[in-house]
Design a protein around this nucleic acid. Sequence first.
DNA 1: CTATTGACGACAT
DNA 2: CATGTCGCCAATA
Length: 101
Amino acid sequence: MKLTIFEKKVLNLVKKIPRGKLTTYKLLAKAVGQSKAARAVGNALNKNPRLIKISCHRVIRSDGRLGGYRLGWKRKMLLLKREGIEFEKNKVKNFKKYIQN
DNA sequence: CTATTGACGACAT
DNA sequence: CATGTCGCCAATA
């Protein structure tokens, strides 16, 4: 499985997110120099070859909603709760305070 | 080269 | 708050 440059960039940033912190597809896009490629970022994570090793569950939507996850958003939510993150109505409560800058 | 496909985002209704 | 629309983009067929 070979990864494209774009995918590598994204995955490398994602794996650095510390436990209990979050980031968004949009921020990642900006971080790799393509502020409008949030959607493409999501696709990159979807292809994530090491779903187990890379914590792609810490990436959410810019509006605080969870966004997708290969194994289902419920699973994603569980993992986040396990890291001490709280929810309300399918949205992360005060998500801005968890964002990793 | 063109068309399609989404783990998206901003805005309108 | 819930949907729908439209624009964006990298990857793929």
